[in-house]
Amino acid sequence: MREPFRGHHDMGGLPAGRVEKTEHDYAFWEKRVDAMNVLLASKGHLRVDEMRRNIEALPPDAYDRMSYYERWISAIAATLLQRGVLTADELGRKMEAIAQREGVPR
């Protein structure tokens, strides 16, 4: 039996709850993520379709659990790694250094 795969993001028409009219003022870090996305796209280091593909590749539970800009920064990271703009090693080491610098416990 063929059972085609429906992407978790492809949700049009699925049952869902009442729409709560929620909004928040964007945090500065969220705007920085947005700004980096805009700049990387305009400089040819990332395409919006690559971003979307990488967001869609998130496991369903992560897609639902992560906030909007958490999904975005994770997709920016994935795109830059795929393109070789960044390496996993340098990104990992940089994140460690920042966590130490900012006193974030493991």
Partner: peptide, 13 residues
């Protein structure tokens, strides 16, 4: 059709 990859044609249509 149900190709793999990044598709912009929604499932429902």
């Amino acid at each position: 059709a149900y190709p793999p990859g990044h598709i912009r044609t929604p499932w429902y249509v």
